[in-house]
């Protein structure tokens, strides 16, 4: 595996070709969707946090999910990845329904997520973090774990793969340190590398740049583009507009739980609805009802 820097925002590759012709309006159908969601609703008490009528994610693209605070981005992430229940609606991933599947089952289908607040397994070493993520280990079965010879080879090959990923994410020198001793940015890198150990066909990154220093942001962006170029679909939540415009192939805008706009970066930049939503949100930030705050609070609390 290589770590060649890729051109940012480049619309190369066959898969992205399809997305260039799609007309930019909410809920539009994509030529080759990997993820299709229909009528997703999730409410807390009286508050509807997510109300997505239709959303498709094109295979092999980098799709950004943006929206003002409390727009329901994290809730949508949680719902899609099986970390939260949905009230109504259904969604499919690579043609298979995901409704009612638990988080680990979704991950096994190839849709792997990261978290807004990094969840490095702090008292495990970096290498252990990586090895833990490898799928289909026979040594992870309670009784299978006693048959060392049966999983030793698998462990070795996983270790090789982990080593390569760590190399690529420039964490190899830390492999025997406990993950708790990593810096915040390194934890983000570790989390992304760990997600790749699962061999996902789609990664869902929840604010991968939050709290990362600018130097690391560059390299994180490179990693994300490299993922796309290898054929992995990326869906990510982010706040930094420059980052989003620079790297995304497609942008979905969420406000108050609904998809209010989607399209290529240039479409979004000039979309009046988006500007209103953002400006409006900024405008009466102070005077906003406690409802959104509560929703945010609930989201934070999970």
């Amino acid at each position: 595996m290589s770590s060649e820097p890729t051109q940012l925002g480049g619309a190369g590759g066959a898969a992205q070709g399809g997305i260039a012709e799609v007309s930019p309006h909410p809920g539009v159908a994509k030529p080759d969707p990997i993820l299709v969601a229909d009528g997703l609703r999730r409410s807390f008490g009286g508050l509807t946090a997510v109300d997505v009528e239709r959303l498709q994610v094109q295979r092999g693209t980098i799709t950004a999910l943006i929206g003002p605070n409390g727009a329901g981005k994290s809730t949508l992430f949680n719902v899609l990845t099986g970390f939260d229940r949905v009230d109504t609606g259904s969604w499919t991933f690579e043609g298979g329904r995901l409704n009612g599947l638990a988080g680990h089952q979704v991950a096994r289908r190839g849709m792997v997520r990261t978290f807004q607040l990094t969840k490095a397994l702090t008292r495990l070493t970096v290498m252990e973090n990586m090895l833990l993520a490898a799928p289909g280990q026979s040594g992870e079965r309670l009784l299978g774990s006693f048959l060392r010879w049966s999983w030793a080879r698998q462990e070795d090959s996983n270790r090789e793969r982990a080593e390569a990923l760590l190399e690529r994410f420039r964490l190899a020198h830390m492999r025997d340190e406990i993950a708790g001793s990593l810096s915040g940015g390194q934890r983000k890198l570790l989390e992304m590398a760990r997600a790749l150990m699962v061999r996902p066909s789609m990664v869902m990154l929840d604010e991968p740049m939050a709290g990362v220093n600018p130097v690391l942001v560059e390299s994180l962006l490179e990693h994300i583009s490299a993922l796309r170029d290898e054929g992995t679909t990326v869906l990510f939540v982010e706040h930094d507009m420059d980052v989003i415009m620079g790297i995304s192939d497609w942008i979905v805008v969420l406000a108050e739980g609904r998809v209010i706009a989607e399209g290529r970066p240039e479409d979004i930049r000039s979309d009046q609805v988006v500007i209103d939503a953002y400006l409006g949100a900024h405008h009466d930030e102070a005077g906003r009802g406690s409802g959104d705050e509560a929703a945010e609070g609930i989201e934070e609390a999970r």
Binding site: T81, F83, A102, G103, H104, Q105, A107, R108, V112, R113, T114, F115, K119, A120, L121, T122, R123, L124, E128, L131, L132, A133, P135, Q137, G139, E140, R141, L142, G144, S145, F146, R148, W151, E155, R194, A195, M197, V198
Partner: peptide
């Protein structure tokens, strides 16, 4: 000792640190 120094034990120790992270990696917590 055998359990803990095996992939099974690795998952178990992962659980101690963060259930959600382990779940997100496809393990049945």
């Amino acid at each position: 000792w055998s359990l803990i120094h095996s992939p099974w034990g690795r998952v178990i120790k992962g659980l101690r640190e963060d259930e959600d992270a382990v779940r997100s990696l496809g393990k049945n917590v």
